[in-house]
Amino acid sequence: KKYKVVEVKENKDGTVELVVENENGEKKKITLSKEELDKLKAGDTVELK
C-alpha cells in the first residue's frame, strides 16, 4: 500500500514520528530513525507492507 506523509514530528530521542495516510483516508503513525527520514519530507509517498 502507498501512504502519503501528512505530518513529520521530531522526538527528543532522535527518532522521527510520521503520520501517513492512504487513499482511503486511513492514517497510520510510524516511527523512523533520523537516517531513514533523511530522504523523506511532507508530501512524499511511502510504501508500507
Results as ranks from 00 to 15, higher is better:
residue 1 K to C: 15
residue 1 K to Y: 07
residue 1 K to D: 13
residue 1 K to Q: 13
residue 2 K to M: 11
residue 2 K to F: 06
residue 2 K to A: 06
residue 2 K to L: 12
residue 2 K to P: 06
residue 2 K to H: 06
residue 3 Y to F: 07
residue 3 Y to K: 00
residue 3 Y to C: 10
residue 3 Y to M: 04
residue 3 Y to R: 00
residue 4 K to Q: 07
residue 4 K to M: 07
residue 4 K to L: 13
residue 4 K to I: 14
residue 4 K to Y: 11
residue 4 K to D: 02
residue 4 K to R: 09
residue 5 V to K: 00
residue 5 V to R: 00
residue 5 V to L: 07
residue 5 V to P: 00
residue 5 V to Y: 02
residue 5 V to M: 02
residue 6 V to E: 01
residue 6 V to D: 01
residue 6 V to A: 02
residue 7 E to L: 08
residue 7 E to V: 11
residue 7 E to Q: 08
residue 7 E to P: 00
residue 7 E to T: 12
residue 8 V to Y: 06
residue 8 V to E: 04
residue 9 K to D: 03
residue 9 K to I: 12
residue 9 K to P: 00
residue 9 K to A: 08
residue 9 K to Q: 11
residue 10 E to Q: 08
residue 10 E to S: 08
residue 10 E to R: 05
residue 10 E to P: 09
residue 10 E to T: 06
residue 10 E to I: 05
residue 10 E to V: 08
residue 10 E to L: 08
residue 11 N to Y: 08
residue 11 N to R: 06
residue 11 N to D: 04
residue 11 N to C: 09
residue 12 K to Q: 13
residue 12 K to V: 09
residue 12 K to A: 08
residue 12 K to W: 10
residue 12 K to C: 15
residue 12 K to Y: 08
residue 13 D to R: 02
residue 13 D to V: 02
residue 13 D to Y: 03
residue 13 D to A: 04
residue 13 D to K: 01
residue 13 D to W: 06
residue 14 G to M: 01
residue 14 G to Y: 02
residue 15 T to Y: 12
residue 15 T to D: 05
residue 15 T to G: 04
residue 15 T to M: 08
residue 16 V to H: 05
residue 16 V to R: 08
residue 16 V to I: 10
residue 16 V to G: 10
residue 16 V to P: 00
residue 17 E to L: 09
residue 17 E to F: 11
residue 17 E to N: 10
residue 17 E to A: 07
residue 17 E to G: 06
residue 17 E to H: 08
residue 17 E to K: 03
residue 18 L to T: 02
residue 18 L to H: 00
residue 18 L to I: 11
residue 18 L to A: 05
residue 18 L to F: 04
residue 18 L to E: 00
residue 19 V to K: 02
residue 19 V to W: 12
residue 19 V to L: 11
residue 19 V to A: 03
residue 19 V to Q: 05
residue 20 V to K: 00
residue 20 V to C: 07
residue 20 V to R: 00
residue 20 V to Q: 00
residue 20 V to P: 00
residue 21 E to I: 08
residue 21 E to T: 05
residue 21 E to V: 13
residue 21 E to R: 05
residue 22 N to Q: 03
residue 22 N to I: 03
residue 22 N to T: 10
residue 22 N to F: 06
residue 22 N to C: 14
residue 23 E to I: 06
residue 23 E to W: 06
residue 23 E to G: 10
residue 24 N to L: 12
residue 24 N to D: 09
residue 25 G to E: 03
residue 25 G to P: 00
residue 25 G to K: 04
residue 25 G to D: 01
residue 25 G to Q: 03
residue 25 G to V: 00
residue 25 G to I: 00
residue 25 G to Y: 03
residue 26 E to M: 07
residue 26 E to V: 09
residue 26 E to F: 06
residue 26 E to I: 06
residue 27 K to G: 03
residue 27 K to Y: 11
residue 27 K to P: 06
residue 28 K to W: 11
residue 28 K to P: 00
residue 28 K to A: 07
residue 28 K to N: 08
residue 29 K to Q: 11
residue 29 K to H: 13
residue 29 K to I: 11
residue 29 K to R: 12
residue 29 K to S: 09
residue 30 I to F: 14
residue 30 I to S: 01
residue 30 I to W: 08
residue 30 I to R: 00
residue 30 I to H: 03
residue 30 I to M: 05
residue 31 T to Q: 09
residue 31 T to G: 03
residue 31 T to D: 02
residue 32 L to S: 05
residue 32 L to V: 09
residue 32 L to C: 07
residue 32 L to R: 06
residue 32 L to F: 10
residue 32 L to W: 13
residue 32 L to N: 01
residue 33 S to D: 12
residue 33 S to M: 15
residue 33 S to I: 09
residue 33 S to E: 13
residue 33 S to N: 13
residue 33 S to Y: 13
residue 33 S to C: 15
residue 33 S to K: 13
residue 33 S to V: 12
residue 33 S to H: 14
residue 34 K to Y: 11
residue 34 K to I: 12
residue 34 K to A: 11
residue 34 K to S: 11
residue 35 E to L: 13
residue 35 E to K: 12
residue 36 E to R: 11
residue 36 E to W: 15
residue 36 E to C: 12
residue 36 E to I: 12
residue 37 L to A: 15
residue 37 L to E: 04
residue 37 L to S: 15
residue 37 L to Y: 10
residue 38 D to A: 07
residue 38 D to N: 13
residue 39 K to H: 14
residue 39 K to V: 10
residue 39 K to G: 15
residue 39 K to R: 12
residue 39 K to L: 05
residue 40 L to M: 06
residue 40 L to A: 10
residue 40 L to G: 01
residue 40 L to E: 01
residue 41 K to P: 03
residue 41 K to G: 08
residue 42 A to T: 09
residue 42 A to G: 03
residue 42 A to I: 15
residue 42 A to W: 04
residue 42 A to F: 08
residue 42 A to Y: 04
residue 43 G to V: 01
residue 43 G to T: 02
residue 43 G to I: 02
residue 43 G to W: 03
residue 43 G to E: 04
residue 43 G to A: 02
residue 43 G to L: 02
residue 43 G to C: 10
residue 44 D to M: 04
residue 44 D to P: 00
residue 44 D to A: 02
residue 44 D to E: 10
residue 45 T to I: 13
residue 45 T to L: 14
residue 46 V to L: 14
residue 46 V to T: 05
residue 46 V to M: 08
residue 46 V to Y: 02
residue 46 V to A: 04
residue 47 E to N: 02
residue 47 E to H: 06
residue 47 E to D: 07
residue 47 E to Q: 02
residue 47 E to F: 10
residue 47 E to S: 06
residue 47 E to T: 05
residue 48 L to R: 00
residue 48 L to E: 05
residue 48 L to T: 02
residue 48 L to P: 01
residue 48 L to V: 05
residue 49 K to P: 15
residue 49 K to R: 02
residue 49 K to V: 15
